[in-house]
Design a protein around this nucleic acid. Sequence first.
DNA 1: GCGGCCCTATATCGGGCCAACATAACGCGT
DNA 2: ACGCGTTATGTTGGCCCGATATAGGGCCGC
Lengths: 175, 175
Amino acid sequence: MDVRTICLGLLTHADATGYEIKKRFEEDGFGHFAEASFGSIYPALSRLTEEGLVSVREEAQEKRPDRKVYSITDKGRTRFLEALNRPVQEDRNRSAFAFAMLFSHLLPRERVHALLESYIADKEARLARLNAHASEVHSPGELFVNGLGQTIYAAMLDYLRAHRSGLSACAEAAE
Amino acid sequence: MDVRTICLGLLTHADATGYEIKKRFEEDGFGHFAEASFGSIYPALSRLTEEGLVSVREEAQEKRPDRKVYSITDKGRTRFLEALNRPVQEDRNRSAFAFAMLFSHLLPRERVHALLESYIADKEARLARLNAHASEVHSPGELFVNGLGQTIYAAMLDYLRAHRSGLSACAEAAE
DNA sequence: GCGGCCCTATATCGGGCCAACATAACGCGT
DNA sequence: ACGCGTTATGTTGGCCCGATATAGGGCCGC
């Protein structure tokens, strides 16, 4: 699932600029499963244009940089379907928080506590965002993925809240 | 949480070769939160050696490549603690499965079904591995992270099983 | 009214990281 | 005798991210 494919997917919904592609994933909360930085989106769109998988129209704006609005072409749609039918890669997750918790016995109690609390706050915010967005979801697939995300965050929050005090206590003893 | 830090962390537990570092994360099931490929582990260990954060002893084996067993140095432990006390990066998750499900209305019913079933089987296997490893866990931190992983997988499986038939039905209608 | 900050918007660059490949020998099954 | 899986190290091409650059607009406080 490279960034070019992610861009093609977004463009099957609606035309968009590179900036909008990035924002949409963040706002819709699908960032849990797929995201990309500007440093990969802009080159991806350039190359998709070269390959004829998307087309561009430049909308000159007064006193702002030109908007480059990208549209997916028929060739692009075909290529996207091919990508969807290739074997899917395994999930890749990386959590610096979880990694740090593996070494909680090496950390001061306050550090473990602060890490836990800010992690919980972050997950709460993400859950709320997904929940807020659930009503304006169109396709059954989006509803499914939104629900999956909410399920994961809710389960994590339950667990984190249930174990927050226990871990901090252990860290204290080892300090 | 770069690969050098991950390697240092593993080496606080026990000396290891590059090969063993990779295996340990896979076997222990912590691969959900942190993992690295050989293509980054070996260069990471070389550079850690240059920087004096780890030391190497070569164990020549007959008729096998030499094992290079790495040990963390005092300087390495200090550096690792510094890394643990720096602000943690946000989680990064990428799921080609979830991304594909966003476009289930573009896919044939059998494809959606096959994707779902193999995804469920994969998560079941990972949950089982975490569960099997829970008994041989030493530190409270590891127990916490193991439990967090199990919680996530269990919640995902509940959700996937509850919604597997619904999604396939929708894909059929759109085919 | 002006300095600071966030938002829109595009783009590049260094460096990190991965997948695939290369090498090499062993043991096990068939 | 052949292939396959496991131990073990390493390189390479290419993808991707984070930081940075550029640039004007709007808004808030002072």
